[in-house]
């Protein structure tokens, strides 16, 4: 499925058989979905504008719908969404960066949050705005992480005062995110055609 070349001709001719395995998708035309990204499950998937899904990123709408906000990046090997057997929707707000190997099962992840490499957010958790999970950190099921929190050093948490008080730092982070999306747009070839039925 993933190896299929996304030529337009192909899409038109075989469109009836293609989305059979894929979930019902609403994908913004400005989003970039790599050819080898996976969208699985049967619940609806909404991908907003300027989203970048890297190759081998996985949107798993098996236990509920998945909504990905504008300017989000989901990296290689990262998984967003609940697996089969668990019920619940997953919402990523704007400017969420899910790094490679991370797994997001959270109910909601606030804007500007960075989920570090191989970090885990278990089901039912909520993560606030402009949070940062450093690599391999874990947020347990049902936990709540307040706005501007940094989760680091094996579960220690700290409210990042700098970002609370300074609009500029927040803007800088948003700007960085948008620039990163711009750069990735040139680097990641788009293959979203096959997901649009």
């Amino acid at each position: 499925m993933a190896a299929r070349p996304p030529t337009t001709k192909r899409t038109t001719t075989t469109s009836t058989s293609l989305p059979a395995a894929g979930p019902p998708c609403t994908i913004d035309p400005t989003a970039v979905i790599a050819d080898k990204a996976q969208l699985t499950g049967s619940h609806p998937v909404t991908i907003a504008e300027h989203v970048v899904l890297h190759p081998y990123a996985r949107i798993r709408a098996e236990g509920g719908s998945v909504t990905i906000g504008p300017y989000c990046i989901v990296s290689e090997g990262a998984v967003v969404g609940l697996p089969e057997g668990q019920q619940g929707d997953v919402v990523l707000e704007r400017w969420v960066n899910v790094e490679s190997g991370a797994e997001v099962l959270a109910k909601q992840v606030g804007e500007g949050t960075e989920v570090g490499i191989q970090a885990r957010i278990w089901e039912g958790a909520t993560v606030g705005r402009f949070c940062r999970l450093t690599p391999t950190e874990v947020v347990g099921a049902g936990e709540e992480v307040g706005d501007f929190t940094v989760v680091f050093g094996d579960g220690r948490r700290r409210v990042d005062k700098t970002i609370v008080e300074s609009e500029e730092v927040r803007n800088a982070r948003v700007k960085g995110m948008e620039k990163q999306v711009e750069a990735l747009r040139k680097l990641v070839p788009d293959g979203k055609a096959k997901w649009i039925s």
Binding site: R132, T134, G153, D160, T162, S166
Partner: peptide, 9 residues
Amino acid sequence: QYCDWTTLD
């Protein structure tokens, strides 16, 4: 770069 602490704190 790890925990986002800055001297502004």
